[in-house]
Every structure is written in structure tokens, then in C-alpha cells.
Design a protein around this nucleic acid. Structure first.
Lengths: 192, 192
DNA sequence: ACCTGAACACCGTTCAAGT
DNA sequence: ACCTGAACACCGTTCAAGT
């Protein structure tokens, strides 16, 4: 089995691989990550066996689609480590992480499950996110701008629940905004 | 179509109705609200048509099962209106509402959807919860112990996301605790 | 009034047969 | 190396036929 996002070597395989990803992205954007895989194969113009050949399960397909976004997120985390305002750095990461975790409807739930499932190809992705956040969190705590009793799991939890709220919001509004801001505010140390 | 929770008049119908509810409760507790309805019918020892006769859709079945818990919750809300400590009253309601909203895995998501879907038999249930919270919220705000810029939707959102977090937690731990406390703290007015 | 179960449409997943 | 699609097991939902 090849690595995630690795394209086949033969031209026909590569063509099908790309067509499947295009169809899957469209389907996930429209109907969420739970949508029919058979319909994706049909949209891509290939047999269902071809989908399973390239993507042995649903999580694998999701992982391939969000790989780029994850790389952007971890790159952002590295950049933010250079920012002087450590609270602002953490805030920006959290915002980006929430956006990433609700790329598709149902993704927050999927990430929540695969975070604890080592067999999922998304497991490593989750831990990359988690680890990126921890560096920024520790740096903010070292500067005394974030409460010491907050840990990485609290942050991860907060990011996922905000993403879930945003996913379940009606298009237009974003129900997560206020609750997210309150939780983040609660984590910060306010000067007396 | 009878009302939610209304038991059939004929003895055989009543027996099947009860057996279905027992089987459904066990199945939902074990596997969440998305579990197979066919398996529930089989467990109850009736044909699938009998399940659909008594419960025309999945939400109807869920609604019948959580009806008692909802009545307890709204009764609690009325009692809490008498409590002098208006912040404590709101807190207790929120705790109970979160517990109610994660009776089964997947229920938070279901409630989130049916809150905006007037055709769902759960729609009225959601609004009962929502309305109960608003009275307590307004009372707390009138006493100056909760911020004025918080509204019922914010509270509802917070309750649902906490329930979702608790549902997705591993048994034993409760990931929602810290984030929920932070959000609630953020809503309250702290004396100078 | 209530029950049964066949019927239909759909889906996930595997795998033997092909090129 | 890759593709196809039949095959299997499963599910939601409806409805004609029964008692």
C-alpha cells in the first residue's frame, strides 16, 4: 500500500486517482464526509473497485483530500512561533485549526474518532495538529499570557467543538463564534 | 397518527410498542442513535413493518425514549426559578441540559439538526429546552450575574457542544468539563 | 386495529476475472 | 499494474395481504 497522497505510476491509474479526488471533494463539500462512495466512483467514471484500489477506506480518501490543508496549518504554526505576541500567535493558530477541522461537514466528528484510533490514516494528522498547538500553547504559558492549568487536550477539545459548531451552523451565521471566544478568553490571563 | 409516547389501545399492539422501546433503548445506549432499526425490530421480536407502524421515523423513536427525561428537565427549570442564587440556578440547569442532550451517542447532533427542522417530532422538544433556558438566563441577567450580551442561542449552542464533547469522550474521562466551565465562567459577571 | 414479510432501492466491501 | 463489475451482506422504507 502506497503512502497517503501518493499518485500511481501508470498514466491510466493516475487519471483515475485524480478523477476520484475531484469527485470526492465535490461530494464531500456538498453532502459531508458520510456521503456515498459508490456515487463518488460513478461521478469519477470508474468502477467501485478502482476507488477501493486507490483508497482502501473512507478515512484514507479524506486524509488525501485534507493533506494540503494540514501542511499549510503546520507551516503556519512554525511561522507563528516567531511572532512576538504569543497570545495572538496562539489565537491565530486556533482560528486556522478550527477552519481546517471543518473543511467538510462531519470532519470534526471523524477527527475526534481517528485521534484515538491508531489504525486510521488520519491518526497521524490529528497528532500533527495536536503537537503543533502544544508548542504554541507552552510558549504562551511561558510568557504568562495563558493559564497554566490548560493543557493540549483542552485546546484540542476546544478546537474540535468549535469546528463541530461551525459545521452544524446554518450557512451564513456561525454559531461557534461567541462560545469559542468565551472559551479562549477563559484560557488567557488578563492583566490586573 | 397518535401523539408521541401514546401507547396503542389493543393489548398486542401495546406489547409490541413496549418491546420495541425496550429494544431501542438498549440498542441506542450500546451503539448510538444511528444504529440499525431492523436490528431493533428483530430484538423486539416483531416484523420491521410493526416498528414503522408505531414509530414512523427514527426521530419519533428517539423522541418517545427521551420524553421522560425532557419532562424532568423542564420541571427542574421551573423549580430552579424559585432559587435565590440565580447564577447557581442557571448552572444547574445547564448541567442537567447537557446530561439530557447526551443520553445517547449522536443525540447532540440529532438535536442540533431537529432544532431547525420543523417536521421533526424532536423540534418541539428542542424548543422546550431552549425556552426553559431563556427564562433562567433572563432572570440571571436581570440580577446582573450574567453578561447582557449573551442570548439564548449562545446558551443552546454551548449546551449542545458540551454534550457533543461528552458523547465523543472516552468512557471514564469527560473532555467537556474544562471547556464547558470556561465558557460558563466567560458568561458570568465577576464582582470587581 | 394491528401484524407480517416480500419488494424495492440503496450502500459498503471483497474478489475473481480480465487487460 | 491496474480496471471491471458481479457477489454478498446489510440497511431504510413502503405496502399488499393477512388476522
Amino acid at each position: 500500500m502506497p503512502g497517503i497522497g501518493e499518485r500511481p505510476k501508470r498514466a491510466d491509474g493516475r487519471r483515475n486517482f485524480d478523477a476520484l479526488l475531484t469527485a470526492a471533494r465535490a461530494a464531500f463539500e456538498r453532502d459531508g464526509v458520510g456521503t456515498s462512495l459508490e456515487a463518488i466512483a460513478k461521478d469519477a467514471g470508474v468502477a467501485i473497485g478502482t476507488l477501493y484500489r486507490h483508497f482502501p477506506n473512507r478515512d484514507w480518501l479524506i486524509a488525501t483530500l485534507i493533506q494540503g490543508s494540514l501542511l499549510n496549518l503546520t507551516a503556519l504554526a512554525r511561522e507563528l512561533l516567531e511572532l512576538d505576541d504569543r497570545l495572538e500567535a496562539l489565537r491565530r493558530f486556533v482560528d486556522a485549526a478550527i477552519a481546517h477541522a471543518c473543511t467538510f461537514r462531519g470532519l470534526a466528528e471523524t477527527l475526534s474518532v481517528s485521534f484515538q484510533d491508531e489504525r486510521s490514516p488520519l491518526n497521524e494528522f490529528c497528532h500533527d495538529m495536536h503537537d503543533s498547538s502544544i508548542e504554541l500553547l507552552l510558549r504562551a504559558q511561558a510568557a504568562g499570557v495563558v493559564r497554566d492549568d490548560i493543557d493540549g487536550d483542552n485546546l484540542w477539545t476546544m478546537i474540535l467543538s468549535s469546528a463541530w459548531l461551525r459545521e452544524t451552523s446554518q450557512p451564513g451565521e456561525d454559531r461557534s463564534l461567541v462560545v469559542t471566544r468565551l472559551a479562549l478568553d477563559g484560557m488567557t490571563v488578563h492583566p490586573a
